[in-house]
């Protein structure tokens, strides 16, 4: 059962009509197969048209789609010997950030990312992808391990943001994020970051200061959620769609602004419609991105990352 978004209603209606026709008893006077084929062509045309010109707000909804592949889906499909490592060695294991050692196309890497979970139980276990300080401190530990054993780091980001809770504040949420940014910027091994769904504010940046930053075609990356921005600047949550537009949070805008380096195309109709295909495309993009970085010297890797971020903001849209 496909989970349709509001703006996909016309497509949903067509597809349910097709389903109905298929289950109709065969009648000699109408050719159902032809009719179905016509409708299917129409539906696929409509899907293509819709997804070719998604608004920023529509992309927000696609990026948050419950059927969209999450970190663990990519980790399982793209890596072998994936061995998650747990704990910050100080307070707790935060399952909002999952990470560990794995092989990517034969090469040992550190892979980590924010995991939102896929049904009630796993969503709760992963705290909906919103990490506490322990999650970021585990990330720091993994960055340092990567540095020590000279392993490239691959991060996949999908989070609404860091967890805003009393416990998180008490244990230094801000400090943990700051240290994670610091640790990642110090790396002398390649770091490739990909925004696979939502890149929510500081909680996302903590894992996203890559030598190369990729974004899936319909993912978003923003300083604040459109809802939060609307409630502060427009004083109304209803203006979220307007805020989404104003914030320039789409992959296409961020590429123009020089904040990301590459857009990874999604299958027509979004990654949630053809999950395996979407995951495979990212795998190839990661390999291509990683290749030149592997030839760089440790000093150059750090320098290139720094210079890239320092150069940001030199021009607007």
């Amino acid at each position: 059962m496909q989970n349709f978004l509001e703006f996909e209603r016309p497509i949903a209606e067509l597809e349910s009509k097709i389903e109905e026709l298929r289950h109709l008893p065969t009648a000699p006077d109408i050719n159902i197969t032809d009719e179905v084929a016509i409708l299917e062509a129409k539906a696929s045309r409509l899907l293509k048209q819709t997804y070719a010109k998604l608004t920023a707000w529509q992309k927000v909804q696609v990026a948050r789609h419950p059927n969209r592949p999450h970190f663990l889906d990519y980790a399982e499909a793209l890596f072998t010997e994936f061995t998650p490592l747990a704990g910050d060695r100080s307070f707790a294991e935060d399952r909002a950030i999952v990470g560990g050692l794995a092989r990517f196309r034969g090469r040992s890497v550190v892979v980590m990312g924010t995991e939102k979970g896929s049904e009630v139980e796993s969503r709760v276990r992963h705290n909906f992808g919103m990490a506490r300080p322990e999650g970021y401190r585990k990330a720091i530990r993994l960055f340092e391990m990567a540095e020590r054993f000279r392993l490239p780091v691959i991060t996949l980001v999908d989070t609404a943001g860091a967890w805003p809770g009393i416990d998180a504040e008490a244990r230094g949420q801000a400090e943990a994020i700051a240290r994670s940014i610091e640790a990642s910027l110090k790396l002398t091994v390649p770091l490739v970051a990909t925004i696979i769904g939502e890149g929510g504010s500081g909680g996302a940046v903590a894992l996203a200061t890559g030598n190369s930053v990729l974004m899936l075609e319909h993912s978003i990356y923003s300083v604040i959620s459109p809802e939060g921005c609307a409630s502060i600047l427009w004083r109304s949550g209803d203006q979220a769609a307007v805020a989404a537009e104003a914030l320039r949070l789409t992959a296409q805008d961020l590429l123009k602004l020089g904040v990301i380096d590459r857009i990874v195309p999604e299958p027509v109709g979004g990654a949630h419609r053809e999950r395996a295909a979407a995951i495979a495309v990212l795998g190839d993009a990661l390999q291509e991105t990683l290749k030149p970085l592997l030839d760089m010297t440790p000093a150059d890797l750090k320098l290139q990352r720094r210079q890239k971020f320092l150069a940001m903001g030199a021009h607007g849209l």
Binding site: L185, V259, R306
Partner: peptide, 22 residues
């Protein structure tokens, strides 16, 4: 915090300022 009106570019000041103090 970040200046929302500069969107992602305000967010990017987090790594930029971190590099500066480093």
């Amino acid at each position: 915090g970040a200046r929302m009106q500069e969107g992602i570019l305000s967010l990017m000041q987090m790594p930029r300022t971190t590099i500066a103090v480093e």
